[in-house]
Amino acid sequence: MGGILLRFKDCFSIRIFGIIGGFILFLRAAPAHAHLVTTGLGPVYDGISHLALTPEDLVPTLAVALLAGLGGARYGRMTLFAVPAAWLIGGLAGLVLTTAVNPYLTTVSFLVLGGLVAADLDLSPRVMITLISIFGLFHGYLNGSVMAQANLGFLGLVGITATVFVMIALVAGFVVSLKAKWMRIAVRVAGSWIAAMGILLLGWAVKGG
């Protein structure tokens, strides 16, 4: 039995089958038809749920974390602090200015970040910090202007920023830890999915306009 377990552990293809099996189970799982408008727990939790339930923010945040993770621990640390800081600054600007921005502009984040993850380009630190700062400022501004209209204020923004920090810490940390070549490729494939979603979001924007 022990020998069988050992072979089981060492067999690369079995791991693949395990992961795909997980995907099948994921696909098989039926939807929980629940919806959440407000948490009822105050603006911080509303901010947290806003990010978690807004794919226009959630998916690009995942993309930036994947990109940082692919860049290694240094870029991961840089992104971990730069994005939430930029998000908070952009959010404060949004709270003050309250001028609405077309939310379909997030398409750019999908396309650029997803494309960069898929291409796995070796970005210089200067390019990386510029990119993630613009990303954080833009999405922060979008959230801030929405928070102002929904009267969630600064605390709602704090909830979002904290969630961004945690999400980047978890995802980028996970990607940095990946050593196997095929797992890095899997991350790149995820990037191509995000870019594809961006192309489709662009289509919806054109159709909506």
């Binding site: 898929a118 494939v189 191509s192 594809a196 961006g198 192309i199 489709l200 662009l202």
Partner: peptide, 21 residues
Amino acid sequence: MWLLPVIFPMVMALGGVLGLL
């Protein structure tokens, strides 16, 4: 093995845009 699954979704998305428009 990895290039085809990277290319496919992006080109498929272009087709999707044509469809939804």
